[in-house]
């Protein structure tokens, strides 16, 4: 990024209505990926000067226990519903989960879910890291996921969405192909980095279950209706553009007994609709990069590169 400038220079402008179409496999109009955040939050993390982990003095057992619910109960319930309707997860992983709860990681890996890194813990923030520290967490992520699953991570979602000005350059340098940290579009697109090709993978803050339940205060059924409306719109628009819909989840929320039933109806709806390429983030990135869409997107942007005086 262009550190310190008003425009961080992350990507080029491309209006929604003037783009080359992305053709998804089998003529599908929308690529749908489900992103379970499989996380570990520490009960007594060290302080980061720029962000506090827990509201109360440690141990803050309600939010800590709430998140621990994921690994005891929520994950298993959520994963079963996803598998039943044919949805593989693309996991935003606190890689230390490979040490704390190897059974959860092995279970997801056995279901053929993809893993990308969400940092070491969701209570260790990137704010204030120097380059060597940031390289250390990237190398730790690559090594830990490879050792636990055999997979080489292709993507990154910053731990607790904490970034530094160099994060995107570094993950591209380490060979990753996508970032889930940018929310400017409903299609993948090029991200400016110092070397390599990095694309932005549409994740979602707006239909993230955390936002649905705790920012917009939706009931479980309202959240399910929201996801279906989001899907219907993106599937319809995707007929001419090729769209991406991500459903970002936390099983301590969606895996609660009052929420999982309405959520299952969403998966049923999407699976039965026929317009969705139900896939994983890495497969979307591979398809995008293998079919020249990166260059086509760059060409679309070039038409708008001159300042419009």
């Amino acid at each position: 990024m262009r550190e310190g400038e008003k425009d961080p220079g992350l990507y080029d402008f491309r209006p929604w209505r003037d783009r080359a179409k992305i053709e998804w496999p089998d003529g599908k109009s929308v690529a749908v990926w489900v992103s379970p955040n499989l996380e570990y939050y520490e009960i007594d993390p060290p302080a980061n000067p720029q962000r506090k982990s827990w509201p109360k003095p440690h141990p803050d057992i309600v939010p800590y226990g709430h998140r621990d619910y994921a690994n005891r109960i929520g994950h298993w319930r959520m994963a079963e519903v996803m598998e039943k309707h044919g949805f593989k997860g693309s996991v935003s992983l606190s890689v230390a989960l490979c040490q704390h709860h190897p059974d959860v990681v092995a279970h997801a890996n056995g279901l053929d879910w993809e893993f990308f890194s969400h940092g070491i813990y969701n209570t260790r923030y990137s704010y204030g890291m120097d380059e060597a520290q940031e390289r250390a967490i990237i190398e730790d992520s690559i090594r830990t996921v490879r050792d636990a699953t055999g997979q080489t991570i292709k993507g990154w979602l910053a731990p607790a969405l904490t970034h530094t000005p160099r994060t995107l350059d570094l993950i591209a340098e380490y060979g990753m192909s996508y970032t889930c940290d940018l929310y400017h579009d409903d299609q993948p697109g090029p991200v400016h980095v110092k070397q390599g090709r990095l694309i932005s993978m549409p994740y979602s803050i707006e239909v993230n279950d955390h936002y649905g339940f705790f920012v917009y205060n939706m009931s479980p059924r309202e959240y399910a209706d929201t996801l279906i409306r989001q899907y219907e719109r993106l599937a319809a628009e995707g007929e001419r553009s090729g769209t991406v819909m991500c459903i970002p989840l936390h099983s301590y929320l969606i895996g609660q007994p009052h929420r999982i039933g309405p959520f299952e109806e969403v998966l049923k709806h999407i699976a039965a609709d026929g317009r969705a390429w139900i896939t994983r983030s890495g497969d979307i990135a591979d398809h995008f990069l293998a079919n020249d869409y990166y260059d086509q997107a760059a060409a679309d942007a070039a038409r708008y590169a001159e300042p419009q005086a």
Binding site: E42, P59, R72, Q99, H100, H101, G128, Q133, I137
Partner: peptide, 25 residues
């Protein structure tokens, strides 16, 4: 930069990062 200890993980181990209970799926 952050304190180097910010990248130490003394409780990164199998099981919980405390001793009150053990994992159970």
């Amino acid at each position: 930069s952050l304190d180097p200890a910010y990248l130490d993980y003394p409780k990164r181990r199998a099981g919980m990062d405390h001793d009150l209970y053990t994992p159970s799926s």
